[in-house]
């Protein structure tokens, strides 16, 4: 007879043991940081409509990237190349718009993102390389490509349809960047939470073997999430180019850490199996608010980096604690 094992003891627990701190930490954190800045920076213009809407507009590209990363991380993978994709896509769009016009430019930008994502995904899914190493390599590779594409020069984008649609325009009184954010979050949430694909992404990140024996094509899921992430990073590149009316290799350079932090703070587990698009949105807004507030407080760039790093550490700690609970 097998010996009764202790691990099999009833672990159903009461409410207290099932209360999931991680699910709410992003909302509590958001509120706490908001209240902190509202009080400390009450005379520095933090609470003005202009400043608050600026935060939302500035975080739009990071939020779009975060949505892609939720899919990637929920599937148990990582995408470190999103920042590099942003620059390549923005530059590809800018160069192509200037040479061939609006539509080819948009296609070139999005296409570059999708293609790099697809290559990442194919290497992970079919060559079976770890996504950490693949996207670390493509991050470096495409950082180089964007630098060599234009000799470190900035490429102006003057097409007003493009800059209106992707950057500074508005529709029904709502800035286009907010439209992009809302649409991306809504579609992302629907696909992630309510489609079979979303369920298969979660199952793959949770237990790839269980997913496979249940008939889910694990390689296809891995290919898909990395392609989605690349495509959304490409869109983020277009948004940067539209808002700044120019593309440069520096675009997206510092976004990777912010986006990963937003996604983790938003309740997506590093090791997969769990994620939240709405959480990532709030996480992204929180990171944007943090940047904004720290600048208004007069912190130096290096101090800002230190504070952000500490907050990311805290977020990762909470995330892993919950996973090993």
């Amino acid at each position: 007879m097998p010996i009764a094992n202790a691990g099999a003891a009833d672990r159903t627990g009461g409410f207290a043991s099932r209360f999931n701190l991680q699910q709410y930490v992003v909302y509590l954190g958001f509120l706490a940081i908001f209240l902190f800045f509202a009080v400390v920076l009450r005379d520095s213009g933090f609470l003005t409509v202009r400043n608050l809407s600026n935060i939302v507009l500035q975080t739009a590209p990071a939020t779009i990237m975060a949505i892609g990363l939720v899919f990637v991380m929920a599937a148990g993978e990582i995408d470190l190349s999103i920042g590099s994709i942003v620059a390549v896509a923005a530059l590809a769009a800018a160069v192509t718009i200037n040479a061939y016009g609006l539509a080819p430019g948009v296609l070139a930008g999005l296409g570059a993102g999708l293609l790099i994502g697809f290559v990442n995904g194919a290497l992970v899914a079919y060559v079976k390389l770890p996504s950490f190493l693949v996207t670390l390599a493509t991050m470096g590779l495409f950082a180089g490509v964007s630098r060599s594409m234009t000799n470190l020069r900035s490429i102006p984008v003057t097409d007003s349809t493009f800059t209106g649609f992707f950057g500074s325009g508005s529709l029904l009184g709502v800035p286009s960047l907010i439209w992009w954010t809302v649409i991306a979050v809504a579609v992302g949430h629907l696909v992630f939470r309510e489609s079979r694909f979303g369920a298969h992404v979660l199952a793959t990140g949770d237990n790839a073997r269980a997913a496979a024996v249940s008939g889910i094509s694990v390689p296809r899921i891995r290919l898909a999430v990395l392609t989605i992430s690349g495509g959304l990073a490409g869109l983020a590149g277009l948004l940067y180019a539209g808002r700044l009316q120019a593309a440069k290799y520096t675009l997206g350079e510092t976004d990777l850490m912010t986006v990963i932090a937003a996604v983790i703070v938003g309740g997506t587990l590093l090791n997969g199996g769990k994620g939240s698009i709405v959480g990532a949105l709030v996480g992204s807004l929180m990171m944007g608010m943090l940047n904004n507030g720290l600048i208004l407080m007069g912190l130096s760039v290096s101090d800002q980096m230190i504070v952000r790093g500490l907050i990311i550490l805290a977020a990762v700690a909470v995330s892993l604690r919950e996973k090993n609970r």
Binding site: A203, A210, V213
Partner: peptide
């Protein structure tokens, strides 16, 4: 299966 093949967090 011996390992049950369940997705633990779902």
């Amino acid at each position: 299966y011996q390992d049950l093949a369940l997705a633990d967090q779902q």
